[in-house]
Simulated assay, not measured.
Amino acid sequence: MKPSDLMSHFGCKTRRELSKKTGFSEVTLWKWEKNGIPPRTQATFEVLSQGKLKADLDALTT
């Protein structure tokens, strides 16, 4: 899962919009763009989206 996937799912065009909709700071979202979304966070988004967003299984095993 990438931040762009979250933006599409939540219908956001900017990091600021995504920050407001998810409750994560813009700095956190920027870090996710650079380093990837942490595995547990990906899994949380997968559950909250009822499977519409998919966690990266390779990231979950590391």
Rank of each mutant, 00 (worst) to 15 (best):
L48D: 00
L48N: 11
G51I: 06
L57M: 13
T61S: 14
L29G: 07
S25D: 03
T28K: 06
L48V: 13
A43D: 07
K34F: 08
T41V: 06
Q42I: 10
C12H: 02
F24A: 10
K31V: 03
T22E: 04
E33R: 00
K2L: 11
R15I: 15
L48K: 12
S49K: 03
G23K: 00
Q42Y: 09
E26G: 09
F24G: 06
K54Y: 01
R16E: 14
T62D: 15
L29E: 02
G36M: 03
T61N: 14
D56C: 11
W32D: 07
E46C: 08
T22R: 00
T62E: 14
K21H: 01
G36K: 05
R40L: 15
Q42G: 03
M1I: 13
R15C: 15
S4Y: 03
L29N: 08
T14L: 07
F45E: 02
W30V: 10
E17V: 04
K2G: 04
N35Q: 11
A55N: 12
K52V: 01
K31Y: 14
L18G: 07
T22A: 00
T41Y: 05
S25F: 03
V47H: 13
R16F: 09
T62M: 09
E33N: 13
C12D: 04
L29S: 04
N35E: 14
G23V: 06
R16V: 12
E17Y: 06
E46K: 06
W30I: 03
K13L: 11
V47P: 05
K2Y: 12
L53N: 07
T41R: 05
W30C: 10
P39I: 05
K52D: 09
W32I: 09
E33K: 00
L29H: 08
L53Q: 05
G23C: 01
Q42W: 08
L53W: 06
E33L: 00
R40M: 13
G23Q: 08
T62Q: 10
A59N: 12
G11T: 01
E17P: 01
R40N: 12
R40H: 11
